[in-house]
């Protein structure tokens, strides 16, 4: 086997793939360079009803009481501790469902969270809920870690739904 030829051929294939990938998704690359996907890999064109929020906005919506907090973590983590009055909808149990387990109106503001840090369940669940019809969804990026770590109201083993 001519190893040098093999490597050269493989490099050519990779180069062609790089050129094709950049050319085919040029608008996305432009948006990325402008910083659109730095916060999350979420296309505002595709999911216009989903926005990312920080602790301050989550706190404001909590105090106002109009939004529903949804915990996307597994049930065990929810039972061990969650944002006060939050509802447990584990991502794993709901991502294949076409109908939402929620009974609240579709126009209600929903705040989805997970552990915080680099957890991805909240964003994935937000997309599922968006497809299920909810169009006013916020993803609290700080998640449980930031909420509990800053002494905000929490509860254990409680699910109002």
């Amino acid at each position: 086997m001519n190893f040098k030829k093999t490597i050269l051929g493989a490099a050519l294939i990779v180069l062609a793939a790089v050129l094709l990938g950049l050319a085919a998704h040029f608008p996305l690359v432009q948006k990325f360079l402008k910083g659109e996907f730095r916060g999350s890999l979420l296309s505002s064109d595709r999911y216009p009803g989903i926005t990312l929020i920080g602790l301050a906005e989550a706190e404001e919506l909590f105090v106002r009481g109009s939004a529903l907090f949804i915990d996307s973590r597994p049930k065990q983590k929810f039972s061990a501790g969650h944002i006060l009055n939050a509802v447990s909808i584990p991502l794993e149990e709901n991502k294949k469902k076409l109908q939402s387990p929620l009974t609240v109106p579709l126009e209600r503001t929903i705040i989805v969270y997970c552990d915080g840090g680099d957890c991805q369940e909240s964003l994935a669940l937000a997309k599922v809920l968006y497809i299920q019809g909810y169009k006013n969804i916020r993803v609290f990026t700080g998640g449980w870690a930031e909420w509990a770590g800053t002494g905000h109201p929490t509860a254990k083993n409680h699910d109002p739904q």
Binding site: I13, V14, A16, A17, V18, L20, G21, L22, A24, L28
Partner: peptide, 10 residues
């Protein structure tokens, strides 16, 4: 962006 094209080409 790139990996799917590598897979298609290969």
């Amino acid at each position: 962006l790139i990996l799917p094209w590598i897979e298609i080409l290969c």
